[in-house]
């Protein structure tokens, strides 16, 4: 799956058509991504191949076309990204990292292929166990947080990716969930949001990750719902889109980070869903398929996934239901 942007351009048609969801073009766009090897951009985005596959596949599932990518090839590609230590890289030959390991597990879970992982997976003990051990090896035993890889960078995103993958593998018990929760609480700010580490500014992407982790850990009781709901609802700007932090530009990917966070605290009705829907629809290229960050920009599979997911969250007709935990 390529993450190369283009060729589509968002919002190039007149208004009435923009308000439709161009399902078929989106499916075709995602299917075409792997056949663009003659473009430099395809090669420059190889470090996102596995995520790209996850984003494309998620969009296809929501669009009601889960079989639009060949299952066998998908499994084969995912397993070809695995390292001897059990972790996955972005593509064959790329180093293992928690972000890609989580994408790999999400893909295998989505297409119900854990049995193949059990049969062919690498890592200590092989199969699910091999992956689980890689993930647990990245937890900081003192603080409870997780590093992204062997080089030690820590970020609240990694707590979510670790817990999410382990929960899909039914292996949450092999890490210290309580300590991870304590760490997340230490990242909470006066506005109810969470940052990348203690003392860091609240950021919608990190909030999504922290709420996702708390939700998996069954500790949503620790969240200050009113404050966070206020801050999140203020992410919606006049154009209907959502931004990631105060006084920043709106962007389709935040439709997902913010709206799913609001859903997790049961406050999605605190923003104008209709205006958000229209904003997301204006970011699609109805002819060539795909979504961009903003109307008029180049489309890519990342924004396509989160555009479709945002619409699904807003219960746009024709899309599969989404479980935002």
């Amino acid at each position: 799956m390529s993450l190369a942007s283009g060729p589509g351009v968002a919002g190039s048609l007149s208004l009435p058509e923009e308000l439709q969801l161009a399902i078929e073009p989106h499916v075709k766009y995602i299917q075409s991504l792997d056949s663009r090897r003659d473009e430099l951009e395809y090669w420059l985005t190889e470090h996102l191949r596995l995520n790209g596959l996850y984003w494309g596949l998620t969009a296809l599932h929501l669009l009601g076309r889960p079989d639009a990518l060949p299952r066998d090839q998908t499994i084969q590609f995912v397993l070809s990204c695995q390292h001897e230590n059990g972790g996955f890289g972005a593509a064959p030959g790329h180093d293992a990292h928690l972000l890609y390991t989580c994408s790999a597990i999400q893909i295998l879970a989505m297409i119900d292929a854990f049995d193949v992982l059990d049969e062919k997976g690498k890592g200590e003990g092989g199969g699910r166990e091999g992956v689980g051990k890689y993930i647990s090896s990245l937890q900081n035993q003192t603080t409870g947080t997780f590093a992204g890889d062997e080089w030690g960078e820590e970020d609240t995103r990694f707590i979510y990716t670790a817990l999410n993958a382990l929960s899909l593998l039914s292996m949450l018990d092999i890490v210290n969930v309580d300590r991870a929760v304590e760490y997340i609480i230490s990242c909470e700010n006066f506005d109810g949001g969470y940052g990348v580490s203690p003392a860091a500014e609240s950021h919608s992407g990190q909030i999504f990750a922290c709420l996702g982790a708390l939700s998996i850990a069954n500790r949503m009781d620790t969240v200050n719902v009113d404050k966070l709901g206020r801050w999140l609802s203020e992410r919606q700007v006049e154009a209907g889109g959502l931004n990631g932090r105060p006084e920043k530009q709106e962007d389709v990917c935040y439709s997902w980070w913010v709206a799913s966070s609001l859903t997790m605290i049961h406050k999605l009705h605190w923003i104008d869903g209709k205006k958000l829907t229209n904003f997301i629809l204006k970011c699609q290229d109805p002819k060539e398929g795909g979504f961009a960050d903003r109307p008029g920009d180049m489309v890519d599979v990342f924004h396509t996934c989160f555009g479709v997911a945002g619409l699904a969250l807003l219960e746009f007709p024709g899309l599969e239901e989404i479980d935002a935990r």
Binding site: L3, S5, G6, V9, S12, T45, L48, Q249, D251, C253, A292, D293, R294, G296, D297, M298, D300, V301, F302, H303
Partner: peptide
């Protein structure tokens, strides 16, 4: 990530 704010001609 992928492309943010990259405008493209119509």
């Amino acid at each position: 990530m992928a492309s943010h704010g990259v405008a493209r001609p119509a």
